[in-house]
Each structure stands twice: as structure tokens, then as C-alpha cells.
Design a protein around this nucleic acid. Structure first.
Lengths: 253, 253
DNA sequence: CGTTTCCTTGACGATTCTCAATTAGGGTGG
DNA sequence: CCACCCTAATTGAGAATCGTCAAGGAAACG
């Protein structure tokens, strides 16, 4: 276990009070931290450092404050299956089964997280039925997203998968008011391919084709001059539309 | 809306008191009906009849008593994506988002269900923290299963997907003590292919190849002489292993 | 500055899809 | 009870997509 906690002092981390990313849309860190008085424990992960490992006892939830996290499962032959890329505002660990983490979470870059004790969250749920309902709705949203991903893998070709993926990444950035014209991909081509059920070479080729089609400009991990509308029609179906409309609603409120 | 309710009298349906299928393994119908005093409303669906439709207001949960149900989502181009096949003991409707059903559920054959009012279940959750925890664990298990399905779609070839699918169907039957040597598939080849991200022709061809390899004997919707061990190794990875071990545990208790 | 890792690009091959024709089953009506 | 019809399943041939293998190059790291 490579695990370093440079900033492990127990403290209510106000930085956590950012509106949760769309994926956890009606469950915000602010709800957890401020309304319910749960204090978090700040922690910084270096690149490739594990936040938690599959099968490990479940003890904490984590809110991502900065950076990026990849979650994956490991088959008994040792292969990895990337299951998601997570951005600031997202909550990790809620899918722990039988009190053990169902996935491994690893930092793709230097990442700040806020740890929340499992039992404190449980107590808070008992106290506040509104908070409980938010947690439940979060689960339902997660299930909904996984079903969307199933649809992507079952129905879409390589171009559509990559376009869908890029749009999902843009959305996350956009939510924090980054320019939609630029995007940094903290994960490798292998990771993207693994996530989308494609070979890494295919990711390269699709990105090059997108560039030739004037949809993006790619420079290694940087994606510039993004033609969102073009990607959107390339993705074939408004896979993330509901999320985006949801985001707008949340930003307005 | 084709909706017929031959047996719509409000009654506590004791038939619902069957141990929930593995997929909802620690959330049993017995827990809901007997321990918490929630009464269900029996209903019989004819083949192809809809139990609920995507986007419809969420009002009830349903426990499948007999028959088989297919759930799917519809894209805005009108295409269907099959998301699951559900057997007696399973609970449907818990994934409703924003108080609307996230999928459409349709009977694949004559099917008996037990309807549970959403608000009654919510009240029961508030009363019993044990029940609440069961519901939460159910969500986590569902998320875990969806992630497994993602792995199947992202990593496995046609043979492995079909073998995995057949094993998942056997498991459900086995749980109700049917012979493992025979299996009835209530869904069409198109449905299977849609679910697995394959063309219906591919399903036919794979089943024929399995038959030539002495793994099964196929006669339209009937599958006989199933070599579970062979299918298991064909599936490539112990995708449903955890579930099966869970099943054994539950049966023992 | 060298080494390592990741990305890119090409050529080839395999799996799977599409299209089309044929066959089998189930249901209906005479 | 049989004949017919209609849907679903099967099977084949050809094409397209994507994966695999291998080589080269660029960025990052120590």
C-alpha cells in the first residue's frame, strides 16, 4: 500500500463546499459538510497513489476537491477494467458492497480529497430524512448513469464512444467554468480504451480522425479547439443531455 | 397503455414471500411484506404487457412472483436498449430517477407481480433502520452488477458474452430448484443480442457453435443438456461467482 | 543526457455485422 | 384436424470495423 497523507490533520475542509458535479447532482458536498455538520479529513494523493483498494474494508467516503481519480476493478487473472473517471465534486465509496470497496480508486494526477467517516454519514442519514433522500437519489442517478454507459458499449461504434467520452469530460470541466475550448486528459490512451472497450491504438486513430474532421486539435494530453456541436452529432445520441440540463438547473438554484 | 389487471384486489399476497433472487440478495420480499407489514397488490401481466413505462411517474415497486420481465430504455431515435431480464423474486422500480421510472418493463410471458406503494416502502424505511440498510445494500449490489455488465461488454467476445448470459439465466432457475439440465429462454434472439451488444444472427451462430462443442442442446427457446462447467470456462472469468456463493449462503440461512 | 514510457502510425487479420434467402414454429381460421 | 400465414430463427456470403503486432517517435523522468 503506497499511501502518503501530507495533510492529514482533522479539520472541516471548507474547500469541499463546492457544488457537486452533475453525476452526484443533488447530493452536494455542501449538503454533507455544512448542513449536517459532518467534518471531513483533508488528504492529498500523488499521481498513481491509491485512495482505496477493491475488497478493502469500507471506512470512508471521499469527496474529490481537485485533480482526477480513476476507478477500476481487477479480474482474478489480474486484468483491470476501468469503470470511471472522476472529477472534483464527485463522491467516491458509496458503492461499497458488504462493507468492502467494490473498486480501486487511484489518482491520475495530484489530487485533493476530503474523507468522511462512514458512520458519521450514516448517523446524518438517520437524523435528516431529506439528506437520506438525497443519498438515495444519488444511488438512483448512479444506476441511471451505469445504464447509459451500458447503452454506449452495446450500441455505439468507436467514433461515437470516443465522442461521447470527450463530451463527458468537457462537461465536467465546464461545470467549473473552464473554457470549453480546451481540455486536459489526465488518463492514458490505454485507460480510455479500457474504459470504452477499445484498443488504445483505436483511441489514437479516432482522435486523429476527429482532428482531420476539424472537431478537435489534439496534442498528447491536451485537446483544444473543441467543436462541441460536432462532437455532439458524432456521438449519435444525446447521451449526456439530461445531465447537462440538470446541471443548468442546479447552477441556477 | 395496454394495461389489464385481472386480479387487482388489494391484498397481502403471501405468494410474494419468496426469498429474493440473488440479484437482490439481502433484500427479500419476506422482509418487505412480513416484517414491515407492507401489503402488496397482486397483478397479472399478459405477454408483452407493460408493467411501467420510462418517464412515467413512479408510484409503485414491483416484486416478480412468476414469469419473466424485460427492462429497456428507449433512445430519442426510438431504438430500444435492453437493460436486463428479471426473474421471480427480483424487485423492479427501485432505480426510478426524479420520481419517474428510468426504464420500461414488459412481460416476456404471463407474469405475476406484487405491487408495493412507494410511500409505504419509504415509511417502512424510516421505521426500521435495518430495512433501510437492506435497501441501501440493494442499491450497492445493483451498482456492482451493472459494473460487472460493463466489464462483460467492454472485454468479452461473442462466445464469452453468450456463455455468461446463459450462466446468469441458469442461476436464476437453479435458485428455484429447477433442473440445471434444462432452461427456457423467454426472450427472443433479438433481445439477447440487444442486451449483449451483438446481432441476433451472432446469437444464433454462437448457440449453434456451443451445441457443436457439446456445451448445450438448443431447440428454439429450450436449452437442454447444459454443461455448466464448460460454459463456465467458456465465459472466461468467474463473472457471477460472487453471486453464486452468496446464493448458497442465503439458502443455508 | 540517457532511459523509459507512452503515443502514433502502418499493415494485416480476425471477428462480427449486414444483407438476403431459407426454414421452422406457433397461431388462426376454415 | 389440417392448411395457411406470419413471425422468428437460421444459415450463408461478403464487407466493414476493430484488434493485433510491430516499428518509430516524442515527451517525461531521473
Amino acid at each position: 500500500m503506497r499511501r502518503i497523507t501530507p495533510n492529514n490533520t482533522r479539520t472541516t475542509c471548507k474547500q469541499c463546499s463546492i457544488v457537486c458535479r452533475c453525476l452526484g447532482r443533488n447530493l452536494s458536498a455542501a449538503d454533507i459538510e455544512e448542513n449536517l455538520g459532518i467534518s471531513g479529513c483533508a488528504r492529498v494523493l500523488h499521481k498513481q497513489e491509491h485512495l482505496f483498494d477493491m475488497h478493502q474494508p469500507f471506512h470512508s467516503l471521499y469527496i474529490i476537491k481537485s485533480g482526477a481519480i480513476k476507478t477500476f476493478s481487477t479480474t482474478h487473472t489480474g486484468e483491470q477494467q476501468v469503470l470511471g473517471f472522476h472529477q472534483p465534486g464527485e463522491i467516491l465509496g458509496l458503492d461499497a458492497v458488504n462493507s468492502r470497496y467494490a473498486t480501486t480508486a487511484v489518482a491520475l494526477t495530484t489530487t485533493g480529497v476530503c474523507a468522511l467517516n462512514k458512520d458519521e454519514v450514516t448517523r446524518a442519514m438517520r437524523r435528516s430524512s431529506a439528506f437520506l433522500e438525497q443519498i438515495m437519489e444519488h444511488y438512483r442517478q448512479e444506476l441511471f448513469q451505469e445504464k447509459r454507459m451500458l447503452t454506449v458499449l452495446a450500441r455505439k461504434d468507436a467514433d461515437q464512444r470516443v465522442a461521447t467520452f470527450l463530451l463527458s469530460q468537457i462537461r465536467g470541466c465546464d461545470f467549473f467554468n473552464h473554457s470549453q475550448a480546451e481540455l486536459t486528459l489526465p488518463m492514458s490512451r490505454s485507460d480510455i480504451g479500457n474504459y470504452l472497450g477499445l484498443a488504445p491504438e483505436t483511441i489514437s486513430r479516432v482522435l486523429r480522425r476527429f482532428q482531420e474532421a476539424q472537431l478537435i486539435v489534439v496534442q498528447r494530453n491536451r485537446v483544444n479547439k473543441i467543436n462541441s456541436a460536432g462532437l455532439y452529432s458524432m456521438a449519435g445520441e444525446s447521451v449526456w443531455l439530461d445531465e447537462c440540463s440538470c446541471k443548468q438547473r442546479q447552477c441556477a438554484s
